[in-house]
Design a protein around this nucleic acid. Structure first.
Lengths: 187, 187
DNA sequence: CGAAAAAGTGACACAACTGTCATTAACATG
DNA sequence: CATGTTAATGACAGTTGTGTCACTTTTTCG
């Protein structure tokens, strides 16, 4: 008893990510998005009333996936190895998160709520990572002479190491080695 | 025989950086810049005809400073240590460079030329870092089982590790240790 | 003091994205 | 195949940044 939708949330998210990664936050606007989806610009307003709401909704969705994966880390034999593999798999998330500072938090109440949600997701991620590092420190697997904050920052910075000329798996294996052993030759 | 300038290049660059770091590339436009400098927007056009030219000029200026410092690295006893201290000092450069993908290279011929210049500066930086790593590899100071590209990416990623609650110097010392020895406790 | 040079400014036309809404189109159902 | 429901659309008014240019202000020097 109704007309079929010409787009869906999945397509919307997929095209949003493509656009943001290609054009940056500037290049991401409903005009460009509508062109790529092959619909009128006003159609998108039936789904999301502001671009900030769409993009934060997508980022929340991505963060949820990563957080879910991190949960499985604690029961693993080598949690750190899993983390590095998650980084390899979700390299796009990190690129998305880099545009966060550009988002107008006050664009609407919904945006503000979304951004707050993202911050709490972030805190949760950092908490989990910190707990993991502390657990490994008390196991005697990770050094304790450098603050947990710096080590967590160090582990998170790894997502920045470019994946070039090698597979996602090889990248993760190599980064894991560098992370744990460092770049020095110590015999 | 002329009127005094109410702004100069230094102020322009300083306010440009502040604006970009606070508001992102979006929030950086001549209207906002003029307000902060306390001049009319049209005044800025007497200095730079496009915001892309201003921002790329500033980035070139910053990159030059870093490259100059990297030159001094080769004669040092421990080049890597110097690099990490440069990263600590020029954390702002990295944030600035993140907006590069958003710059419209075709905004004018001058912008295009500037962007090309930046790319060559980047190549130069990467060449110098690669040469440094290779030198240290043949000295037996750095492991050779992981590609130079990945190690260079790894070293460059360090600028992302947040400096929080510690001094620039302490940050550099800690990151240097993590970089060389890794996070594991190996006895 | 008055002229010349250089810098600063306001106003205007323009271009691009935003948000809304009345209208139109598609589709499932009886 | 007529009807009700939901989705899509085009057009319009509004907002914001851009780039230009004729005009004004400041400053110096003869």
């Amino acid at each position: 008893m109704s007309r079929k939708r010409s787009i869906n949330q999945i397509e919307l998210f997929a095209e949003t990510e493509k656009l943001v990664l290609e054009k940056g936050y500037n290049g991401f606007h409903f005009k460009a998005l509508a062109e790529r989806l092959g619909v009128a610009r006003s159609t998108i307003y039936n789904y999301y009333p502001k671009k900030e709401e769409l993009i934060t909704a997508y980022m929340i969705y991505l963060l949820n996936q990563v957080i879910e994966r991190i949960d499985s880390v604690f029961s693993a034999e080598d949690p750190l190895k899993i983390i590095v593999h998650i980084w390899a798999r979700y390299a796009n998330l990190h690129q998305m998160l880099q545009i966060m500072p550009y988002i107008d938090h006050e664009a609407s109440d919904a945006v503000n709520k979304n951004v707050q949600h993202m911050f709490s997701q972030f805190e949760e991620m950092k908490r989990k990572l910190t707990a993991m590092i502390e657990m490994m420190q008390s196991d005697g697997r990770i050094r304790t002479d450098i603050s947990v904050e710096t080590i967590v920052g160090f582990v998170m910075a790894m997502v920045q190491v470019p994946i070039r000329g090698i597979s996602e798996e090889d990248w993760a294996d190599n980064v894991y080695i560098l992370l744990t052993e460092g770049i020095s030759l110590h015999q």
